[in-house]
Simulated scan of single mutants.
Amino acid sequence: MSTQDQSELFNGTANVGLKDTRSVDGTDTRAIPAFVFGEELAELADHDPRIVVLTADLARSNRATDFANRHPDRFVNVGIAEKNMITMAAGMAASGYVPFAATFGAFAALLGAEQIRTDCAYPGMPVRVVGHHSGMSMGFYGTSHHSLEDIGMMRCIADLTVVCATDANHLRALLRLSLDQPGAMYIRLGRGRDPEVYPEVPDLRIGRAETVRDGADLTIIATGSEVHPALQAAEELAAGGVSARVVDMFTIAPLDRDAVLDAARTTGAVLTVEEGNVTGGLGTAVAECLFEAGVQVPFRRHGVPDEHVPVGPPAGLYTHYRLDGPGIAAVARDLLDSSKGTPA
């Protein structure tokens, strides 16, 4: 496309008829996680000369332009060369920098898995690989651009910290924490249009889950883009007399095992929710934790089944897979009903 770069197309600013109005209308761009990425790093870089940003021809999609405008000498657009970008970032990290290498989640985690493992995690390089537009947020572009396997893949890499941003303020907190986090990190951004969960920048600790709603009958352990609809589901369940706890398990590796076991021991059931393939992801991590601790509790993994999702608008896909508020509430009721021995 000679009249526009890739960033314009995938950011949705190109007039190609691929925008889903239900997914974008009414959202302040400053509250979009992918859009505060460059701004927050630019602010941090004003006081930290170690920070550099790399992107693979998607500076406008992830708003790395905000960083490039203020720190052009510390910004690199490598072009459509994601694997090379991650290796370049590792070299910069070996030279004393803290590089943030950003591209679509599917390209970062799937294309760059070897580089993340061998060049970043294995030698303990402080590279922050940022996978934005993950999950099904690239719905119109199909399987090649869906990032449903990244949680499962990244959590299997030794010495790699894996975190998922919940909303804009949450992302700001993660970026600040990442500056002094040892070793490599994979930072997963959701659909880029995530509603607010945290009205202010939260006080986080890597490896410690956040309980964003308390409850006694059920715990919904969600991550990233699914925390907000999990809260909506909890509201719907409360109207029917079900008290649901909602835990933001934003750190996938290392997992907060204490939060998982506490949920299993103090509430009646555990439901995990993630915008990704249930095979190997958050749900699998929680199941492993429960099994290894010998804790028995009604449990269900909820996310995308082990299949390639159809092409369509993200909002429609969330409804289709029951990953919106009403869908999660329905799955929770199924779990509770089945645990009582009644028909689901």
Rank of each mutant, 00 (worst) to 15 (best):
M1Y: 04
S2Q: 14
E8D: 14
D20P: 13
I32Y: 00
E39A: 15
L41H: 05
H47T: 14
R50V: 05
I51C: 11
I51W: 10
L54P: 04
A56T: 10
D57E: 02
A59M: 12
F67G: 09
A68Q: 14
H71Y: 05
D73Y: 03
R74T: 07
V78D: 10
I80M: 07
K83Y: 04
T87D: 07
T87W: 03
M88Y: 11
S95T: 03
F107R: 08
E114R: 11
Q115E: 15
T118C: 11
D119S: 15
D119V: 11
G124W: 09
R128T: 14
V129L: 07
V129E: 04
V129H: 02
M138N: 12
G139H: 02
Y141N: 08
G142H: 10
S147L: 01
I151E: 05
C156R: 15
A158C: 08
T161V: 13
V162Y: 02
V163K: 06
C164V: 05
C164T: 09
D180Y: 09
D180G: 02
Y186M: 10
D194K: 00
E196C: 15
V201W: 00
V201L: 01
P202A: 15
G207Q: 05
G207T: 03
T211M: 13
R213I: 09
G215A: 06
D217Y: 09
I220K: 02
I220F: 06
T223S: 14
V227W: 11
A230P: 06
E235S: 12
L237E: 01
A238R: 13
S243N: 04
A253M: 04
P254K: 15
D258L: 06
V260Y: 00
A269V: 05
E275F: 02
A285T: 08
E288L: 07
A293P: 13
F299S: 11
H302C: 05
H302M: 01
G303I: 08
V304R: 02
V304F: 05
P305F: 06
A315G: 06
Y321I: 02
Y321R: 01
G325D: 03
G325K: 01
I328S: 11
D334K: 01
S339I: 02
G341L: 12
